[in-house]
């Protein structure tokens, strides 16, 4: 999403604590109409990719230099994840409430990761970020059931395996 379209077109610049000043394509900016829980005023994020972390990405606020999340495709964590969107979230995404959005076609699901220095990497599957691929509107869709954890552990395959 953060591709540079043309060298002659001057892209806007976001100042970030993690990446310094970065150019971003305004047409690829994700708009969270109501922010995220705890970050209510923060609506505009750009996706920053680093090849060595793909398909994990950073969601960097374009207005708050210090605000950045690490996010992974939900399908990478749970291939059978079942999305549940309430009416409010469907409206915020501008999706038709009469039909279920298809992941990968209509929407992209990302899980926000918590990556502490000491302690396991976890993903919030209770509240995935849902991006409407047609208009780049996004919500953090908080489920009201207890089916998925907000601290779903991600096993590290790099850990030594005892035989």
């Amino acid at each position: 999403m953060a591709t540079r379209v043309h060298s002659l077109i001057r892209m806007p610049v976001a100042h970030t604590r993690r990446f310094g000043a970065i150019e971003y394509d305004p047409s690829s900016v994700l708009t969270f109409p109501s922010g995220l829980p705890g970050f209510d005023g923060h609506s505009l994020f750009t996706v920053v990719e680093q090849p060595e972390l793909a398909p994990v990405v950073f969601l960097q606020s374009v207005t708050a230099p210090e605000l950045c999340f690490l996010a992974a495709p939900v399908a990478m964590i749970d291939a059978h994840y079942e999305l549940a969107l309430n009416r409010e979230d469907l409206d915020r995404l501008d999706l038709d409430p009469a039909r279920s959005p298809v992941p990968g076609v209509d929407v992209l699901l990302l899980a926000l990761l918590c990556a502490p220095e000491n302690g396991p990497l976890t993903a919030n599957l209770l509240a995935p970020v849902v991006i409407n691929l047609h208009n780049h509107r996004a919500v953090q869709a908080v489920r009201s059931d207890l089916r998925y954890s907000h601290q779903h552990p991600i096993p590290s395959t790099a850990e030594p395996v005892c035989s």
Binding site: L70, L113, V142
Partner: peptide, 24 residues
């Protein structure tokens, strides 16, 4: 989710990123 978002925005450690890159 709010508390987890605070933790997620605070905790993107170099060590965890290196481990994640290795496992990917």
């Amino acid at each position: 989710t709010r508390d987890q978002n605070f933790a997620s925005a605070r905790e993107i450690s170099h060590g965890a990123l290196a481990r994640l890159s290795d496992s990917l």
